Computed example of a mutant assay.
Amino acid sequence: MTLPSEKSPSAGLILVAVVEMAPGHAEAGQRYEDAVLGLLDRHGGVVERRLRGTDSATEVHVIRFRSRAGYESFMVDPDRLTCRAGLGEAAPTTRVIEVRDLGTPVHGS
């Protein structure tokens, strides 16, 4: 089995985003995430997995971009910035972690 590496163009850029909704604004934060995740395809990005905490206050996204340039263009997308500015204090906070795929998970017995 071969694993994608940073030098492999097929690997692209894989990110994990941990999104914390502003207290009392979970629904607004979720609508924002719906909207901005819908912009990914114009930048060569795709959501591979979207998970929501059982309390609805946190989301975790696994996102893949074809290139770092795609991620950078997503971050400055005018539609994304307008959406975020419109939320004001209801805007979620996000921690983004660049990760690499280690291949098939190993399950214990």
Results as ranks from 00 to 15, higher is better:
residue 2 T to H: 11
residue 3 L to S: 09
residue 5 S to K: 09
residue 6 E to H: 09
residue 9 P to N: 14
residue 10 S to P: 04
residue 12 G to C: 05
residue 13 L to P: 01
residue 14 I to S: 05
residue 15 L to Y: 05
residue 16 V to R: 03
residue 17 A to I: 03
residue 18 V to A: 04
residue 19 V to E: 00
residue 20 E to T: 14
residue 20 E to V: 02
residue 21 M to G: 00
residue 22 A to H: 00
residue 24 G to T: 12
residue 24 G to N: 14
residue 25 H to S: 02
residue 27 E to W: 09
residue 27 E to R: 13
residue 27 E to I: 01
residue 28 A to V: 01
residue 28 A to E: 01
residue 28 A to C: 06
residue 29 G to A: 02
residue 29 G to T: 06
residue 29 G to H: 04
residue 30 Q to D: 08
residue 30 Q to A: 12
residue 32 Y to P: 00
residue 32 Y to F: 15
residue 32 Y to Q: 01
residue 34 D to K: 10
residue 35 A to E: 05
residue 38 G to I: 10
residue 39 L to A: 12
residue 40 L to S: 11
residue 40 L to N: 05
residue 41 D to P: 11
residue 41 D to W: 11
residue 43 H to E: 14
residue 43 H to W: 14
residue 46 V to M: 10
residue 47 V to Q: 08
residue 48 E to I: 11
residue 49 R to G: 10
residue 50 R to V: 01
residue 51 L to Q: 08
residue 52 R to M: 04
residue 53 G to N: 07
residue 54 T to S: 12
residue 54 T to I: 14
residue 55 D to E: 13
residue 55 D to F: 07
residue 56 S to Q: 11
residue 57 A to H: 08
residue 58 T to A: 06
residue 58 T to R: 15
residue 60 V to C: 04
residue 61 H to W: 06
residue 61 H to Q: 06
residue 62 V to D: 02
residue 64 R to S: 07
residue 65 F to N: 04
residue 66 R to T: 15
residue 67 S to C: 09
residue 68 R to K: 14
residue 68 R to H: 10
residue 68 R to P: 06
residue 69 A to F: 10
residue 69 A to E: 15
residue 71 Y to G: 00
residue 71 Y to N: 05
residue 71 Y to L: 06
residue 71 Y to F: 15
residue 72 E to M: 09
residue 73 S to C: 05
residue 76 V to L: 05
residue 77 D to N: 11
residue 77 D to I: 08
residue 77 D to Y: 09
residue 79 D to C: 06
residue 79 D to E: 15
residue 80 R to S: 02
residue 81 L to K: 12
residue 82 T to D: 11
residue 84 R to S: 07
residue 86 G to Q: 14
residue 86 G to K: 13
residue 87 L to Y: 07
residue 88 G to E: 11
residue 88 G to Q: 12
residue 90 A to G: 01
residue 90 A to W: 00
residue 91 A to S: 10
residue 92 P to I: 00
residue 92 P to H: 06
residue 93 T to C: 00
residue 94 T to C: 07
residue 96 V to W: 04
residue 96 V to E: 04
residue 96 V to S: 03
residue 97 I to E: 03
residue 97 I to C: 02
residue 97 I to G: 01
residue 98 E to P: 02
residue 98 E to I: 04
residue 99 V to C: 01
residue 99 V to D: 03
residue 100 R to N: 04
residue 100 R to L: 02
residue 100 R to H: 05
residue 101 D to K: 08
residue 101 D to P: 02
residue 103 G to T: 08
residue 104 T to H: 13
residue 105 P to T: 13
residue 106 V to P: 02
residue 106 V to C: 05
residue 107 H to G: 10
residue 108 G to T: 14
residue 108 G to P: 05
residue 109 S to T: 15
